[in-house]
């Protein structure tokens, strides 16, 4: 019995026949993870840039906390958000538990610290190079933030891809807060978990292959964009 071969054949079949159930799951996965990435980036990248330029007492502690948050177990994040969004929790009246929005929140919470910590790392090097020149131009630290974000854009693209990878590969948190509801909150990873539970290992693996292919495509597209943009001198 060649399970991996079966899985590969199943994966190709799923893609070639454009299986509608699969298409829906893939679209939801992309919608959830890309929205989470957008939200996390709007918070995480400026925060990373601010931490790169700011010097204040307790900065080391903040950086340590941020680095620790990068390793936040998804299940813990999921539980926390579950308790917040539950009808019996403080945000219960919003009715967001077991919806795609809850999953977006969970993924954004998971990856925002990653984006912040990695962009801090990347932009601090750039800041060391730019600091004197920007001060000579009369730009304060705050004004340096957008400059660093723009000038570090190619390195930040890699940071964003890392964040997207973590978001789209995540299963523990979205399972808890999304509920893996068929046709509503079922994404690639929870579908894989479900098929694994049903002992349908080749199908689970096939879904995994499709997920990897999608992530690979997105990475390739991002790399190509980066190369074209760099060649164009942007």
């Amino acid at each position: 019995m060649n399970d991996i071969g079966t899985a590969a054949a199943t994966a190709i079949d799923l893609v070639v026949t454009a299986d509608p159930a699969l298409a829906r799951i893939v679209l939801l996965s992309l919608r959830v993870s890309l929205t989470a990435l957008l939200i996390a980036a709007l918070v995480g990248l400026p925060l990373g840039a601010l931490l790169a330029v700011a010097r204040f007492p307790g900065r080391g502690l903040v950086l340590s906390v941020l680095n620790a948050l990068m390793g936040l177990p998804p299940v813990v994040a999921g539980l926390l958000i579950y308790l917040l969004l539950s009808r019996s929790g403080p945000l219960g009246p919003l009715g967001l538990l077991f919806t795609p929005t809850a999953m977006i929140i969970a993924q954004a919470v998971l990856i925002a610290p990653i984006l912040a910590a990695l962009s801090r790392e990347v932009l601090e090097g750039l800041w060391e190079e730019y600091a004197e020149q920007l001060r000579s131009f009369g730009a304060g630290r705050l004004r340096a933030v957008p400059t660093l974000l723009w000038d570090g854009r190619f390195a930040l693209l890699t940071v964003l891809l890392a964040g997207f990878g973590r978001a789209s590969a995540e299963v523990g948190a979205v399972m808890i807060v999304g509920g893996n509801i068929d046709g509503f909150t079922r994404v690639m990873t929870t579908a894989i978990a479900l098929e694994t539970s049903a002992g349908n290992l080749p199908l689970a693996l096939a879904l995994g292959m499709v997920l990897m292919a999608i992530v690979l495509l997105l990475n390739a597209a991002a790399q190509a964009t980066r190369q074209v943009a760099q060649r164009a001198g942007a």
Binding site: R24, L27, L28, L30, R31, L34, T35, L38, P100, G183, F184
Partner: peptide, 10 residues
């Protein structure tokens, strides 16, 4: 793109 995929399942 997000708006286009959004709400479809609701």
């Amino acid at each position: 793109a997000l708006a286009a995929t959004g709400g479809a399942a609701a």
